[in-house]
Amino acid sequence: MALSVFSSRSKVINLVFNDQYIRYVELKQSTPPVPLRWGEKKLSPGMISDGKIVDFDTLSMVIDECIQDWKINKREVRFIVPDSIVIIRKLSIPSDIAVDEINSYIYLELGATIHLPFEHAVFDTVIMSKAGEKQEIILFAAPEKNVLEYSDLLSEAKLKPIAADISPLANYRLFSAATDELEKANAILVQFDTHLVSMTIFEGAFPLFLRHLSIELNDWLNPDAMSVQQDGVGQVNELNYQFEDVYKEISKLMDFYTYSFTQGKKMIEQIAVNGDHPLFERILAEMGERFTIPVKPITYDGSLHAEMEEFPRSYYLGLGLGLKEVK
């Protein structure tokens, strides 16, 4: 699925930002592409908050360190816009608006017939269907100020930003690389990270809704371990409550899609899960027990390339971003 078209480029650096870290993935240009190098820089609290850059100057110094450590000076880069500032909407517009005029139409209608929770937006669109006098499009939007800050951050560090993307599309590409199931199904893709859970409804290749829920990674949960340091029943219960809130939110989103959005005509048929939460396997198992539809992890088969060390799940988003131009 090509929502934006960029020319084919080799060894572009793929960057993922969130409140806790910056991660990069560089792909070897092969068929399929193979992760060549990857790395992470943890961020001090307050540099990025809710996906928005707060301390630009300090973050700029961190980017400079990353460039030196990762040896990516003056490289072209793609980056993922944090989910917490992204809006996805399905819109109906007149069918006589040509493809190359849709974005201009959206720009003119913002604030009039199309309303977003921010005044100035950067956006992209893709046509979903066309029938009679109407065509259905998907609108992807984010606050212009916040997206341009990421672009400026990279440009000032002598990197060359060529594309911005969103995590649901990166996850979709990665899952679709292994199976064509999503192209035939109505599904929810869940990105379950340590501090944020994002849930996106897909109809085939088209994302319709994006919801996110903040969670806390408690001090007593070791982010590098796969278990809870159980030194108190209350602590374990707190973790259980957080997970239960997430599962309830997924159920609500499924019900909204079935009963409100499609008036009972369609239902969610599959859940695909990715993320870097240290209890990912437990989360996957609990979701499998709770929901009656298939729950599957988004995977990458590194065994296809014997020379490669195990590729960590925490870098899957960067890998999916790197598949942006793969046909």
Rank of each mutant, 00 (worst) to 15 (best):
L3N: 14
F6I: 15
R9S: 13
V12A: 07
L15T: 11
V16D: 10
D19R: 04
D19K: 13
Y24E: 06
Y24T: 03
Q29E: 13
S30R: 03
P32F: 02
R37H: 09
G39N: 05
E40K: 10
L43C: 05
M47T: 09
I48M: 03
D50W: 03
V54R: 05
F56W: 04
D57Y: 06
Q68W: 07
Q68P: 02
D69V: 07
I72C: 11
R78E: 05
F79K: 05
K90M: 12
L91R: 05
S92T: 11
P94N: 14
S95G: 15
E101K: 07
N103Q: 12
L110Y: 00
T113E: 15
V122W: 00
D124H: 06
T125Q: 06
V126M: 05
I127Y: 08
M128Y: 14
A131V: 06
G132Y: 02
E133L: 12
I137H: 03
P143M: 12
P143R: 09
P143T: 11
N146A: 13
S155E: 10
S155G: 08
A157L: 05
L159C: 09
K160Q: 14
S167W: 01
L174I: 00
E183N: 09
K184A: 11
I188D: 00
D193K: 00
D193A: 11
M199V: 04
I201E: 06
I201W: 00
E203V: 10
E203F: 01
G204I: 05
A205H: 07
F206P: 04
F209N: 08
F209D: 02
L213M: 08
S214V: 04
I215F: 03
I215H: 10
M226K: 14
D231H: 11
V233F: 14
V233N: 12
N237F: 15
Q242W: 09
E244Q: 13
V246T: 01
Y247V: 09
K248Q: 13
K252P: 00
D255F: 12
Y259A: 13
S260A: 05
S260R: 08
T262V: 12
M267L: 15
M267T: 15
M267S: 15
M267Y: 15
I271E: 01
G275Q: 04
D276R: 03
P278H: 03
P278T: 08
R282F: 05
E289W: 03
E289D: 14
T292R: 14
T292N: 10
T292F: 10
I293R: 13
I293V: 13
V295K: 01
D301H: 09
S303R: 11
L304C: 14
H305M: 07
E309F: 06
E309A: 08
Y315V: 01
Y316E: 01
L319R: 00
L321E: 03
L321M: 07
G322P: 03
G322L: 02
V326Y: 15
